[in-house]
């Protein structure tokens, strides 16, 4: 059942589209919307939609209310307001929200109730300071906590967004400390973090097995 795997592309990457898989088109400017919608209209998979910034999403709110868009990936790019979200949370639509740590505050949580998943995006070690709080807030609204941007060694690995998104994960150059790590080919990054190489093969056997067979399009 390939439904969980999806292809996320920019408009210029249409050759990467796989007809049998869900499709998400990343639009960088509002002007790309119509072209993206045209491609989505002819895509046969029921799960299809857009990835765009929150600012653009708000500007395009009416167009995004189309039922044809069953998948909406919103990148928070400014302080979210209460009115920003409600209209996106439609029945039978997956809405994922990527929020940088700086915008993720406990008072945001009630506003996000209705999202399918909320992903905290981090860039530095400092961004991880409030991760335990983030986890408990996510649990309080029955959300599986996901973090994007953190190396596998800095968070419980199963909460790494990239773990399930290997196809779209760029493996950047790593500090020397990462050389012995079992996950050098899978972990998104260690720049900006103090890495602790994961070397216990027994402990990570099942995670490695999972990744070994994960060489398909992204799960999320």
């Amino acid at each position: 059942m390939p439904m969980l795997r999806k292809v996320k592309i920019h408009l210029k990457e249409v050759e990467k589209i796989i007809q049998t898989l869900p499709l998400v088109i990343k639009i960088k400017t509002i002007s790309e919307l119509n072209d993206a919608l045209a491609i989505l209209a002819s895509h046969p998979h029921p799960l299809k939609g857009l990835e765009l910034s929150m600012t653009d999403a708000i500007a395009l709110e009416k167009k995004l209310s189309m039922q044809e868009i069953s998948y909406l990936s919103i990148l928070v790019d400014s302080e979210p307001k209460a009115t920003s979200w409600r209209n996106f949370f439609l029945k039978n639509r997956i809405v994922e929200i990527f929020s940088p740590a700086e915008f993720f505050k406990p008072n945001l949580v009630p506003l996000l109730k209705g999202a399918s998943r909320i992903v905290l995006t981090v860039k530095t070690e400092d961004d991880l300071e409030n991760v335990p709080r983030y986890f408990s807030e996510m649990i309080s609204i029955a959300q599986f906590p996901l973090i994007k941007g953190a190396p596998f060694c800095k968070i419980p690995m199963e909460h790494s967004y990239e773990l399930y998104d290997q196809n779209n994960t760029q493996i950047k150059s790593k500090p020397t400390a990462c050389a012995a790590c079992l996950f050098t080919n899978n972990c998104p990054s260690a720049q900006g973090f103090l890495p602790i190489p994961l070397i216990d093969k027994n402990k990570f056997e099942d995670a490695l097995r999972f990744l070994h067979h994960e060489n398909t399009a992204a799960r999320f």
């Binding site: 059942m1 439904m3 969980l4 869900p22 998979h45 029921p46 799960l47 069953s70 039978n92 639509r93 997956i94 399918s116 998943r117 649990i139 029955a142 959300q143 599986f144 199963e158």
Partner: peptide
């Protein structure tokens, strides 16, 4: 929670 997350997508499909 992870299970719910997967099933949400499957239900939409």
């Amino acid at each position: 929670l992870f299970l719910d997350l997967i099933n949400d997508e499957l239900d939409v499909c």
